[in-house]
Design a protein around this nucleic acid. Structure first.
Lengths: 214, 214
DNA sequence: CTGCTGTTGGTACGTTTGTACCATAAACAT
DNA sequence: ATGTTTATGGTACAAACGTACCAACAGCAG
């Protein structure tokens, strides 16, 4: 058996090229030829690894969510152990905001797919919504523990709070992508919301959550 | 001069057909021929009133925002005079949520345009973001008056609250469009937020805002 | 009626799309 | 070397796209 090539890695190169292209020129400008050119390979090779365009699109979407999950995992792993729930949430949501360039690219392409899925049942069946759902799971978990610890308002409902946070985050993300708001303004609004979520008069019991990076 | 036809009305028919088509099959499936078929006219007619496809797309976007503004104006005009600020906000945001079919169509098409605008500078220059901006203006206005009336938390900032409301609303809207959440769940979260915005312990001074439709 | 102008329908051209096919060169295990 | 897999090139084809062009009809002035 000659010329052993990692097919998955090759596919990753191609789907990455697709994402790069989509982030730059929009998902509508993604063609087999354009992807081949972006990846620096021949059109024939793209056809070799993805028999049809739909397969390529689906694979790119899968890789997109996979990369996003990896970024999240890395970010919370890099988080210092003794962190407040609030800091944890902010770190989680900061990744979900299109601040830096890779995050911006991700959100742009993901939104493009989301819009496509609104009218394409086959794409809607693809569980790429799991990205947000995974985030929502972590949010619920964190909020429930915070609620048990008495850091939240007593009448707060953790799962609803998680949904609200997620909605705010997505709304802010698109507003930033559209250019309606700057990244700083989005972060400010997010912090405003977290301020309300964690009222000051409840957390006056010497917590070590002092590290305040504005 | 023979055969006098209202050009604007004709254009409206065509752009409406475009929006209808885009809401059903996605903006990517909008072609000159498809729009002509949807409107029940010939391709030549579409070319006659819109020399190029870009003009047609821009006109449809303009009409979309115009119709949206009209719906808002009508909705708040139909609102009974003695309404609480909270009821006013809920009415305003209910229109901005893809609950009924026309509202769903509007959000779907608007999101499609928004995604396009992220990579198309010419489309981004088009001031179709004014729709949300107009809503934000009304929100700020209402929240400022409510703040002056003492219905809000004293430390609340009306303009930030407006931005937050708008973000929540947009996030909820897309989650409903994606099928991640039902319309009822979205409304519940919205009411949850409004409950927090207008705390009960502040409004216990015999206001006539009793009409509570759940 | 005759003729001009606004309006419509049909048709065609060049380009780009996804997909398909065939031959061939390069790389590596045996 | 032998043979199988990987990769590339070229070419082609039907379909759909935006756009342009040309003939024909409808209504009003003279």
């Amino acid at each position: 058996m000659p010329k052993i090539v990692d097919h998955d890695e090759r596919r990753a190169q191609l789907t990455d090229a697709l994402v790069r292209l989509a982030a730059r020129s929009g998902l509508h400008s993604v063609t087999m030829r354009a992807v081949a050119a972006e990846a620096g390979v021949s059109l024939r090779l793209v056809q070799y690894y993805f028999h049809t365009k739909a397969q390529l699109m689906h694979a790119a979407l899968a890789r997109l969510t996979e990369q996003s999950n990896q970024r999240w995992a890395k970010r919370i792993a890099a988080l210092a152990e003794p962190t407040s729930t609030r800091g944890y949430l902010r770190e989680l949501l900061a990744e979900a905001l299109p601040t830096d360039e890779p995050s911006r690219a991700f959100h742009l392409v993901w939104s493009s797919y989301a819009v496509l899925a609104m009218t394409d049942p086959e794409l809607a069946a693809q569980p790429f919504i799991e990205g947000p759902n995974l985030l929502e799971g972590r949010l619920i978990e964190a909020l429930e523990s915070a609620h048990r610890a008495g850091e939240l308002r007593p009448e707060a409902d953790p799962s609803t709070e998680a949904a609200r946070l997620l909605s705010i985050n997505h709304g802010l993300a698109t507003s930033v992508l559209i250019g309606q708001r700057g990244a700083a303004a989005a972060h400010a609004i997010l912090n405003y919301h977290l301020d309300e979520l964690f009222p000051d008069n409840l957390k006056e019991r010497g917590h070590t959550q002092s590290r305040q990076d504005s």
